[in-house]
């Protein structure tokens, strides 16, 4: 087991190093970066911000990892967030109790995911095309629900999901951590991990092996939809309102990026949910760092792009056996000297 852990750690090296480097740079830009204090019974500090703000993308990345591992992609998660947020806000304003509101919003995400899954698995549409439909239409649906305006609510039960805390830990972090643990446990304790990788690498061969790949794909997309809905609820609860135009805008790209930074190939196959979550944290650490650095906002995107290029290069260098190669070079040089 320890051999496996070491191997996993070596594989995670580029990501861990990137995260540490970004955190260190953040510290240089802002010496108080690692300070954490209790504010109104809630942990407060930049590090907490990174996790708290990263939580929605972590949740999206969990669902997205499964989709990408199956050699797909879900472009609609941002729009699904907007739908679930809009539904939650509108229903709350209409006076529905919080549990019903949450269930309805998650149910909307489930429906969206099932829609995507049916298009991909049973109608054999390319995932990028299939989910593009909902990416475009979904935001329109959300706007219809909110009638184009920001629906503001003051229901403490719902707001709790965005800004509340339990034992000092902000709810979004708690929810993301819970989902992460749950997802990893399900993937590890059931055969789903193996079967998802299998259809991602070779769907045809998996079907020949007796796998119900259509049903599995449907479940994967449905799960991704539920994750997106959950992220949508958190974001709406955080700002106490549903902004159909902007909620989750472009977050599908952040989620995909998190998965890629985490080392799962867009060509499907081997995946690690934990690493995708780490990818999401890296992205958010970078975003928070940019905010703290005081650089003019015109540089945000360039800085972000640069950091991502460096991470991806390090990752591909590593997967090509670059570290081992370097080590070998050092060894052979050492040998020459003797």
């Amino acid at each position: 087991m320890s051999r496996l852990n070491t191997a996993a750690l070596t594989k995670a090296m580029p990501q861990l190093l990137s995260l540490m480097l970004i955190l260190f740079l953040n510290y240089l830009a802002f010496p108080g970066f690692f300070e954490i204090r209790l504010q109104d019974g809630r942990l407060f500090g930049s590090l907490i911000d990174v996790l708290n703000r990263g939580a929605p993308v972590i949740i999206l990345a969990i669902g997205m990892t499964a989709v990408i591992a199956s050699r797909g992609v879900d472009l609609s998660v941002g729009a699904v967030m907007a739908i679930s947020g809009a539904l939650a806000a509108t229903m709350t304003v209409s006076g529905y109790p919080v549990p019903i509101v949450i269930l309805a919003a998650l149910g909307a995400g489930l429906l969206c995911g099932l829609w995507n899954g049916i298009l991909v698995a049973y109608f054999d549409l390319q995932p990028i095309v299939a989910t593009l439909i909902l990416m475009v239409a979904g935001r329109g649906i959300a706007q219809l629900i909110t009638e184009g305006s920001i629906v503001t609510f003051n229901e403490p039960g719902l707001i709790f999901f965005g800004t509340g805390s339990f034992a000092g830990i902000p709810m979004p972090i708690l929810i993301a951590a819970l989902l992460l643990t749950l997802a990893i446990a399900v993937v590890r304790r059931t055969a789903l991990g193996l079967l998802i990788e299998s259809i991602g690498i070779n769907r045809s061969a998996s079907s020949y092996a007796g796998l119900n790949s259509k049903l599995l794909l449907l479940v994967i997309y449905a799960f991704c939809g539920v994750c997106a809905a959950l992220a949508g609820i958190i974001i709406a609860a955080d700002i106490r309102g549903a902004d159909a135009n902007n909620a989750g805008l472009w977050l599908e790209l952040d989620a995909i990026l998190a998965v890629v930074v985490g080392g799962t190939s867009l060509f499907g196959g081997r995946f690690s949910i934990l690493m995708s979550a780490l990818g999401a944290v890296i992205i958010q650490a970078m975003n928070t760092g940019i905010l703290l650095s005081g650089f003019p906002p015109e540089y945000n995107l360039i800085l972000k792009a640069l950091v991502i290029i460096v991470i991806l290069l390090a990752q591909s260098f590593s997967s090509l056996g670059g570290w081992a190669f370097l080590k070998g070079e050092f060894r052979s040089k050492g040998a020459n000297r003797q």
Partner: peptide
């Protein structure tokens, strides 16, 4: 003293303000 983009949105406004608050003691 600090100027950042919040993309005209509530959630970004909140996130950026959180950063400002940390960075300014």
């Amino acid at each position: 003293t600090r100027s950042q983009t919040g993309d005209f949105t509530r959630s970004k406004g909140k996130e950026v303000m959180e950063g400002f608050l940390k960075a300014e003691s």
